[in-house]
């Protein structure tokens, strides 16, 4: 017990490394603040395309894009973009490589969610909107997308939670986010308390979202029966 306290919950070390970890937390939040909007925006485009494209070849192309990037592990995409692009003669800044790697993955996931949402909006909504004189784009913007988003809100929140957790992968390319600085701090103080503290910070940050999701999920299943 003493050993666990000493190595996992060492308050002295917590106090010592807190400033570093705080900086890492900022990086994690900063990264999330870029990656989530980029993922949502590209996902929305893909979702809209999957319900509007009619040409067969275009649909096949889109489905291939979605399935390929859902099949590749996010860490793989990150490593590929970060270590592969120099061979193309491109020298991407680290942040850009991370954002692109995550975007490839997130656009497919968010895209599938938005597609499901758009498909859940009854056709009559679109027809009614069009018959009042709205253009196709206006209908999409003001009628279909708002309803679609509301219908898939739990899935959107759940995926966003996964994206925030995914930012830890950036530690693999030495991005100084929360997990990375915790690992560095661990080797400095020769005690694993910093990693445990990082876990506690993630828990404090994300636990409310997890609770919210549990409630939304039960309402969905419970309401249907």
């Amino acid at each position: 017990m003493q050993e666990i306290l000493q190595n996992f919950f060492n308050l002295e070390i917590y106090y010592q490394v807190a400033p570093y970890l705080l900086r890492g937390l900022w990086m994690t939040l900063f990264l999330s603040a870029i990656v989530i909007p980029v993922g949502l925006a590209t996902g929305l485009v893909i979702g809209v395309l999957s319900v509007t494209l009619k040409a067969r070849w275009a649909r096949i192309l889109l489905a291939t894009y979605i399935d390929v990037f859902r099949a590749l592990p996010p860490l793989y995409l990150l490593i590929f973009v970060y270590f592969g692009t120099p061979f193309l003669g491109l020298d991407l800044p680290k942040l850009l490589a991370v954002v692109i790697g995550f975007m490839l993955n997130n656009s497919s996931y968010y895209g599938e969610i938005f597609r499901a949402g758009l498909e859940s909006v009854p056709k009559g909504q679109m027809e009614a909107a069009r018959s009042t004189g709205l253009t196709a784009f206006q209908t999409l913007r003001w009628v279909q997308i708002p309803q679609a988003t509301r219908n898939v809100m739990p899935d959107l929140i759940s995926n966003t939670l996964e994206v925030v957790k995914m930012t830890t992968l950036a530690s693999a390319v030495a991005m100084p986010e929360l997990l990375r600085v915790a690992r560095d701090a661990q080797s400095l103080v020769y005690n694993p308390s910093p990693i445990v503290l990082a876990a506690l910070i993630y828990l404090a940050l994300l636990w409310p979202v997890v609770r919210l999701l549990s409630r939304l999920e039960h309402r969905k299943l419970g309401g249907g029966s």
């Binding site: 050993e3 666990i4 190595n7 996992f8 957790k165 995914m166 830890t168 992968l169 530690s171 997990l179 690992r183 661990q186 005690n191 694993p192 990693i195 445990v196 990082a198 876990a199 993630y202 828990l203 940050l205 994300l206 636990w207 979202v209 997890v210 609770r211 549990s214």
Partner: peptide
């Protein structure tokens, strides 16, 4: 369930692999 859904999997791996050896 709440803890393991909130903490990123990579953090869990790191704790098991790098922190647990400290408690033998």
């Amino acid at each position: 369930a709440d803890i393991l859904r909130a903490v990123p999997p990579l953090v869990v791996i790191m704790i098991l692999f790098f922190a647990f050896p400290y408690i033998q």
